[in-house]
């Protein structure tokens, strides 16, 4: 399948005075895709989405919607719609009036508005009985659903989300994330979501774009981003990792503080940098030939992370993290660690 490109960015810049908030971002998003832009706060993701929605204009570059340049088209003339971080519900209206508002703006007649509103409330898993309820009487989760229903009622070509779930408690957030993905599948709409939580991005997205200091540093499927981060920043942003500073020595990567040399990851030249290994890729060495250099250490802490256990291992001058499934056998206190070259990544920083 070759889905059509719905949104294309060509070297888009946004400057505020001398400050470059968005720096030469190029990207194309396919029809029906769930695309998530993720980055720490201040990475420019909110600025970028404001450009995409039409609330700001790019300083340079072009934004194309189905091949049409929309740089200068204001938000109210674009066939796209955004769910705000604050949700931005109309506080003086009922749930029904909120959801019908985009239809009212298009002069849709009353009966049809009501029909569409109820349909969208259903899609957002809100009972039709909420139609007459004032939004001020809705709970946090219900408001999320109202905001979503309102955006769906607009029937946008692309639905944008600006971290709408960030103020919701953990369990409800997990539920809503999955529902959102279901709704996206069900409606077949293109969703563009921004968040600072990579976990959230992983759960929902078809593809993820990672932003840092205004630049899009990596774009790929959640699996690609997780398994093959292209920079130390991305690999660290994905979660806790072990970072070993290394220098070349006799065709190997020498980690001075540990006094252990490692084979480089396949295809990597031997050079100075950081060798990054995920906690779950660290292996206990007990018998058999080790896959790589061996690190001696002592477990001094363990944390239960739901289905997994994380061990803090103290080695010479380092604390390393190792993760195992909860039901795996309990390791000894004094242990030896290693990892396969395939599970490590070498970055120049």
């Amino acid at each position: 399948m070759a889905p059509e490109t719905i949104l294309e960015l060509k070297s888009v810049d946004k400057h505020f005075g001398g400050f470059v908030a968005v720096d030469r971002v190029s990207l194309s998003i396919a029809e029906g895709e769930f695309f998530t832009i993720v980055g720490p706060s201040g990475s420019g993701k909110t600025t970028l989405i404001r450009l995409l929605v039409g609330m700001d204009k790019p300083t340079h570059g072009d934004i194309l919607l189905r091949g049409q340049r929309i740089n200068d088209t204001p938000a109210h003339l674009r066939p796209t719609c955004m769910v705000f971080q604050s949700l931005a519900l109309f506080p003086h209206m009922t749930v029904g009036e909120n959801v019908e508002y985009p239809l009212k703006c298009r002069n849709v007649d009353k009966a049809e508005r009501r029909r569409r509103a109820e349909e969208c409330l259903g899609l957002a898993h809100l009972p039709a009985g909420y139609y007459d309820r004032p939004v001020t009487k809705c709970s946090g989760g219900e408001r999320q659903r109202v905001a979503l229903a309102r955006a769906l009622a607009f029937d946008p070509e692309i639905l944008f989300f600006d971290e709408p779930l960030s103020a919701i408690d953990y369990r409800l957030r997990k539920t809503l994330e999955k529902e959102l993905k279901d709704i996206q599948r069900e409606t077949g709409k293109t969703f563009v979501y921004i968040t600072h939580s990579l976990e959230e991005a992983m759960i929902m997205s078809d593809r993820i774009g990672v932003m840092r200091s205004g630049r899009l540093v990596q774009v790929g499927s959640p699996r690609e981003i997780y398994k093959a981060p292209n920079s130390r920043f991305v690999s660290e942003f994905m979660g806790e990792v072990n970072v070993l500073p290394v220098t070349p020595a006799n065709g190997k990567l020498m980690c001075e503080p540990l006094g252990v040399a490692f084979d480089p990851p396949p295809g990597e030249a031997v050079r100075a940098g950081s060798l990054v290994v995920r906690p779950e890729d660290m292996r206990f060495v007990n018998g058999g030939p080790p896959p790589n250099g061996v690190i001696e250490g002592e477990i001094f802490n363990e944390y239960l992370l739901g289905s997994r256990v994380q061990y803090q291992v103290r080695t010479r001058g380092f604390t390393l993290l190792v993760e195992r499934l909860r039901d795996a056998e309990q390791p000894d206190r004094q242990i030896a660690l290693s990892f396969t070259p395939e599970d490590s990544a070498l970055f120049p920083e």
């Binding site: 609330m55 204001p74 931005a88 109309f90 607009f154």
Partner: peptide, 21 residues
């Protein structure tokens, strides 16, 4: 709230409609 105004604009509200509604 400014974002409520922005949301209304995003939904396609004209200036007059925004003022009134």
């Amino acid at each position: 709230p400014p974002d409520v105004r922005e949301a209304a604009a995003d939904m396609g509200a004209t200036r007059w409609r925004m003022f009134r509604d």
